[in-house]
Structures are given as C-alpha cells and as structure tokens.
Amino acid sequence: MTNATRISATLPPDLAAFLDEYQETHHLSSRSAALAEAVRALRDQNLQEAYQELGEAQRSGQETYPDDNLDGLENE
C-alpha cells in the first residue's frame, strides 16, 4: 500500500482466528491485507443496499437521486 493509515483493532479470538485463516487460504501477505478485503466487502455491501433502496424509491416515483451523488467509487 502506498498511502495507508495505520489503525489498531481488537478482535474476539474467533474473529482473529478467522482473519488469520482467511489470510492463509487466500494467500494474502498480511492481516492488514485480509482486513482491507473485509472493509472493501462491507463498503460494497453498503453500496449495493443503497442502490437497491434508490431503485425501489425510483420505481415508486420518488425523485431521490441527489445532485451531489458520490457512490464511493471515485478513488478506485
């Protein structure tokens, strides 16, 4: 990672073990890489839910798409 922010996280033992297992089985270089994948998955899930809500609102005739829409993918 070129620009990264260091964080500290405390996880219950079962989640830490899962993270380590995920890192190993997916051949990731570090826990940080595994955690980054997890955060990306959460972001993607959140974005998918927001688009579903927007679609439902638009199907019901509501004008809900904001002019300043940022979908979170600008820096990908």
Score class of each variant (00 low, 15 high):
Y51D: 13
N46H: 12
P12L: 07
S32E: 03
A9H: 02
R40M: 04
L11Y: 06
T5Q: 12
S29L: 08
L19V: 13
E49F: 05
Q52K: 09
A33E: 13
D14C: 02
N3Q: 14
S29H: 06
S29P: 08
P66K: 02
F18D: 11
S29W: 02
R31F: 03
Y65S: 08
E53I: 07
A57V: 01
Q48A: 14
L54K: 01
E63F: 10
E76R: 14
L47G: 01
M1R: 07
T10S: 10
N75W: 05
R43I: 09
V39M: 07
L35F: 12
A4I: 08
E24M: 09
D67M: 02
N46K: 13
A9V: 15
L73P: 00
F18Y: 15
Q45D: 15
L70Y: 09
D67H: 06
S30W: 06
S29R: 12
R40K: 12
E24D: 11
S32I: 04
I7D: 02
Y22F: 15
N3Y: 12
Q52V: 09
E56V: 09
T2E: 15
D44I: 01
E21T: 11
H26V: 00
Y22V: 01
Q48D: 11
N46D: 10
A57K: 12
T25M: 07
E24Q: 14
L11A: 01
R31Q: 05
L73Q: 11
R40P: 00
A17P: 04
P12W: 05
R40L: 07
Q48M: 09
A4F: 10
I7T: 08
T10P: 00
D20S: 12
I7H: 11
L19W: 03
Q62W: 05
G72D: 00
A16D: 08
D20Q: 11
A41Q: 12
S30M: 04
P12Y: 05
I7K: 08
L28C: 02
P12F: 06
R59V: 07
I7W: 04
A34C: 05
N69V: 12
V39E: 03
E76T: 11
L28H: 00
T2N: 15
T10A: 05
L70R: 13
Q62H: 11
S60I: 01
D14K: 06
N3S: 14
A50P: 01
L19A: 10
T64N: 12
E49P: 00
A36W: 00
R31L: 06
Q62F: 10
S32D: 06
A16N: 09
H27S: 10
T5V: 15
L35K: 01
G55D: 11
L73D: 06
A33S: 09
T64E: 13
D71W: 03
G61T: 02
E37W: 08
E76G: 08
D71V: 05
L11V: 02
A50E: 10
A50G: 05
F18M: 13
L28A: 00
L28Y: 02
D68Q: 00
L19R: 04
E21C: 05
A50S: 10
A4M: 14
H27G: 03
D20I: 04
T2K: 15
R6Q: 14
E76L: 15
H26R: 14
N46S: 09
R59P: 00
L54D: 00
V39T: 07
D68V: 02
E74I: 01
R59L: 13
N69I: 14
Y65V: 15
A17S: 15
T64G: 14
F18L: 13
S8T: 14
S29I: 07
T5K: 14
Q62I: 05
A33R: 04
S8P: 00
